[in-house]
Computed example of a mutant assay.
Amino acid sequence: MDEKTEGQLRVIRDVVAVLQTADISAWLFGGWGLDARIGRTTREHGDVEFWVERVHAERSKALLVEAGATALPTQPAEESCEYTWDDVSFSTAYFDRQSDGSFSQPLGRFSDWLFPPGSFGEEPVTLDGTPVLAMSVSGMLAMKEQFPSLRNGRPWRQKDITDMEILRGLAT
């Protein structure tokens, strides 16, 4: 395992630990979310991405900064926050629960993104020996499938196409 991957795994453990002490859940998504669902590291990742329920956005940011992360002013505050912690990049994006059991990001550039019921469950998976929450397979697949058709989306990259194939395999 290379130094970058070790640093990202350390940040995943640290973010989970900091937020758990305040009873705030954070769900991995993106490449690390997929790896968590698979149960092992499958490739090098550019960053670490978490979903946090919007009602915990400000408190989670304050706790992470207090613990040693640096919040960066790079994203619209209503959507997400990017950080660095010991030279490792990570972010928290914010979602809202809807009355029908689905989830959305109703504020900001991706307000047309919808996630199916069950996208944010409370059953942890294990990543590198650490119990973590990860967005559900159906939730991550919905994210990937919708992205090109979103108002501010863009075409799939090859890794997105590969991830969707893996997610579809996990869903069966």
Rank of each mutant, 00 (worst) to 15 (best):
A69Y: 01
T70D: 13
T74W: 13
Q75K: 09
P76G: 04
E78Y: 10
E79Q: 15
S80F: 00
S80L: 03
E82L: 07
E82F: 06
Y83H: 00
T84Y: 07
D87L: 08
D87M: 07
V88P: 06
S89A: 11
S89T: 13
S89G: 00
F90Y: 07
S91L: 08
T92N: 10
Y94S: 10
D96H: 15
D96S: 15
D96L: 13
Q98W: 09
F103E: 05
S104L: 02
Q105M: 15
Q105C: 14
P106N: 07
P106D: 11
S111P: 01
S111H: 14
D112K: 01
L114A: 10
P116G: 09
P116I: 05
G118N: 07
S119Y: 01
F120E: 00
E122P: 01
E123I: 13
P124I: 03
V125D: 04
T126S: 12
L127R: 02
L127W: 07
L127G: 09
T130C: 11
V132A: 05
L133E: 03
A134P: 08
A134W: 06
S136W: 03
V137G: 01
S138E: 15
G139E: 10
L141K: 10
M143T: 12
K144E: 04
E145S: 14
Q146D: 11
Q146V: 04
Q146R: 13
F147C: 02
F147A: 09
L150D: 02
R151A: 12
N152L: 02
W156E: 00
R157N: 10
Q158N: 07
